[in-house]
Nucleic acid binder design. Structure first.
Length: 647
RNA sequence: GCGGCUGUAGCUCAGUGGAUAGAGCGCUUCCCUCCGGAGGAAGAAGUCGGGGGUUCGAGUCCCUUCAGCCGCGCCA
């Protein structure tokens, strides 16, 4: 196509202008539009100074004159589409290619980055919930897809085990109370799983002597126990991590205090008793800069007098602020509280530095967070930007900014309040743009679980949490009632993953438990898996009849419309994967799997595979069956769903 | 107030700026001498929330408006 356009330009039929017009070849929706369509004539008609159909005619003749073996026919249709019809033999020649590639079919070399994908990362004070299940399914599949697209992928789980965390403290105290036979504190953790954790460590506690054990000891033990439960639930769900990274290890290694010193030194953090807040108008435009004084009573307009009283009485040292408003955040954030304890943001700075600076040296970080964290994007980006800013300051010495940033524009009134100087502004904005380029935060949206047509509660009144492992077990029990425990887990995992991945991660959706628990054709998971099992059955049957699958059959025998449609669908897999890797929309793989299964069923219905009196046709169709199996299994593998040979 | 998500067939939802907007469920019919019927074929069903704009062309991109769900701590 490019060649043809280029020829026409050289020969003076088309003006030079046309060279810039994009050439797009797309799949057609309707068979009468041929196999592929090209819209070039319409896109370029203005520049060419010809009407689209005229231009299309010219292109058509030129292409046909080239005598490409793939093209059988071209017609100019509609407003100016070029509809290409391909030779069936050319289409059929892809079958042996697919057979050669085998399990590599889904792979491509479109990406070449080193990517760190962090996902799930829930606190070690509770089980993986069905809400986090979406992040687990999404993160693991996205990782698979990015890897298939040619990237080196590192899967990571961040353990929020900072000893200063209030939540972890409370969790430890709750467990301690249970072990000691006392009632748990009013605001403590009360679910069954807390008792399970207590039971898990009780023996060791008793042997060490209860009175000697501190809350610290309980925190460590309770957390270990919980982590183990989380890991086993994730394993059952088909999710594995390369690294389980401990927040506390950063504190112990002194990395956090190093970062804090560096931030103070470079001026992105300080203890001035003010807090900058930005009032934003539509579109993120800064409307007003508010600098609040933080001296004396922290009284703001707080409705809760106890809370502010507590803050005042605990006051020991001035609050340390991260001036995150310099990096696009809408308010400054606390790094170190009045009582001296560090916030999670402090460790996040050190954590992100670590991710970038490890030997494996990630080019890009992807962090997958739940819907309750979307306000965290700005904060996290600011944290990384501050980290870059502090690091560049440290390297270049004091005054190191970005020399020759080229932006000599003066400070606006708003900028003056935030940055104070042109140099500071430019350096901070440069750091921010680097942070945006290298950190990508993906938020998945809320899942609502529907049972009997009504929303199922995520958290029960007795303090129990609807855990992912329970979801897997419940579905497995319904869908594989006669299976072994392992079969039930696999079935539950397959169904749950498929359902989580059916919709874009970026959109809220209802998880239909009633449908998920149906062991019938209504359930899309089984529809897809059944297609795979059916192919395997045909292949078994063929083997019994003495047929072998080879890549040297006479594939030109494949001329039926449904055979050709199936071949094209099979060949789509690597392109689907590539697209998913580009826009992270991995839900398309479930749609693809359903469509591929359907296309196979169509073929199966119209084209009998095993026919003793037509051995050549049989061998060709067996090859196509095997190719379909390769694509189906390829898609299911990426989704983390099993491809059963029998059902 | 600010931000995120959503609005497409009776229901649940697909949909790469392309031609007559597609599936599944449900509804009305039909196909088992059969390699697995957990399958297939046909039909009815739509002002793509409303209004502007961008362009050869908009469900898709931009603006605006209406409706719904969710989130905005010195918790993580």
């Amino acid at each position: 196509m490019f060649g043809v356009v280029s020829d026409l330009i050289s020969s003076g039929v088309l003006p030079e202008d046309v060279r810039g017009a994009p050439v797009e070849i797309s799949d057609t929706k309707q068979p009468e539009h041929g196999d592929f369509a090209c819209n070039f004539a319409m896109v370029a008609s203005k520049k060419a100074g010809m009407n689209p159909r005229q231009l299309g005619e010219a292109l058509r003749e030129k292409i046909l004159a080239k005598g490409d073996s793939a093209v059988r026919e071209i017609e100019v249709a509609g407003p100016g589409f070029l509809n290409f019809r391909l030779h069936p033999s050319w289409v059929a020649s892809f079958v042996p290619n697919v057979l050669d590639k085998g399990s590599d079919l889904a792979k491509s070399q479109s990406g070449s980055k080193r990517i760190n994908v962090e996902f799930v990362s829930v606190n070690p004070n509770g089980p993986i919930t069905i809400g986090s299940g979406r992040g687990a399914a999404y993160g693991s599949t996205l990782s698979n897809v990015l890897q298939a697209a040619g990237n080196v992928v590192h899967r990571e789980y961040y353990i929020n085990d900072g000893v200063n965390s209030e939540q972890m403290r409370l969790f430890a105290e709750s467990v301690k109370a249970i072990v000691e036979g006392r009632p748990v504190p009013d605001n403590g953790y009360k679910g069954d799983y807390v008792h399970a954790v207590a039971a898990d460590i009780k023996e060791e506690a008793s042997s060490l002597g209860l009175p000697s054990l501190t809350t610290d000891w309980y925190q460590q033990k309770a957390q270990d126990s919980m982590l183990q439960a989380q890991e086993s639930a994730l394993t059952a769900f088909g999710v594995a991590f390369d690294t389980w990274f401990s927040e506390q290890s950063l504190h112990e290694a002194g990395a956090v205090s190093v970062e804090i010193d560096q931030m103070i030194e470079s001026g992105v953090a300080d203890a001035n008793p003010v807090r900058t807040k930005l009032k934003l108008a539509k579109g993120g435009v800064i409307d007003e800069v508010i600098v609040e004084s933080q001296t004396g009573d922290v009284s703001e307009d707080d409705d809760d007098p106890n809370a502010s009283a507590a803050q005042v009485t605990e006051g020991g040292q001035p609050t340390l602020w991260l001036r995150s408003t310099k990096f696009g955040d809408d308010m400054d954030r606390v790094l170190r509280r009045r009582d001296g304890r560090l916030t999670y943001i402090a460790s996040d700075v050190a954590y992100h530095k670590d991710k970038f600076n490890r030997p494996e040296n990630a080019d890009k970080l992807i962090t997958i967070l739940g819907p309750d964290h979307h306000g965290y994007i700005g904060r996290l980006t600011a944290v990384v930007a501050a980290m870059f800013r502090a690091a560049s300051r440290a390297e270049q010495g004091a005054g190191g900014g970005v020399p020759g940033a080229g932006n000599a524009s003066e400070l606006s009134e708003v900028e003056a309040k935030i940055y104070g100087s042109v140099e500071e502004r430019d350096a901070c904005l440069a750091a921010l743009s680097e942070a945006k380029a290298r950190l990508e935060v993906q938020i998945y949206q809320l899942v609502r679980f529907m049972k009997d047509g009504k929303p199922a509660p995520m958290r029960k009144r007795d303090g129990n949490i609807y855990a992912l492992i329970d979801l897997i077990r419940e579905i497995g029990e319904k869908v594989a009632p006669d299976g072994t425990d392992e079969e039930k887990t696999t079935a539950g995992r397959d169904v749950a993953r498929f359902f989580y991945l059916m919709r874009s991660h970026d959109t809220t959706f209802d998880f239909d438990l009633d449908l998920a628990e149906k062991q019938s054709d209504d359930n899309p998971v089984f529809y897809v898996q059944y297609a795979h099992a059916r192919i395997c059955s045909v292949l078994r049957k063929a083997a019994e009849a003495g047929f072998e699958v080879t890549d040297s059959a006479d594939f030109e025998k494949l001329v039926h419309e449904r055979e050709l449609t199936l071949i094209k669908k099979v060949c789509d897999l690597p392109y689907e994967v590539k697209r998913c890797a580009e826009d992270y929309g991995v839900h398309r793989l479930t749609t693809y799997a359903i469509e591929l299964a359907r296309t196979y069923h169509h073929f199966y219905d119209a084209c009998r595979v095993i026919q003793a009196d037509q051995p050549e046709l049989t061998r060709a169709r067996l090859g196509l069956c095997q190719a379909t199996r390769v694509a189906l299994k390829g898609a299911l593998d990426l989704l983390g769903i099993s491809a059963p040979e029998r059902m």
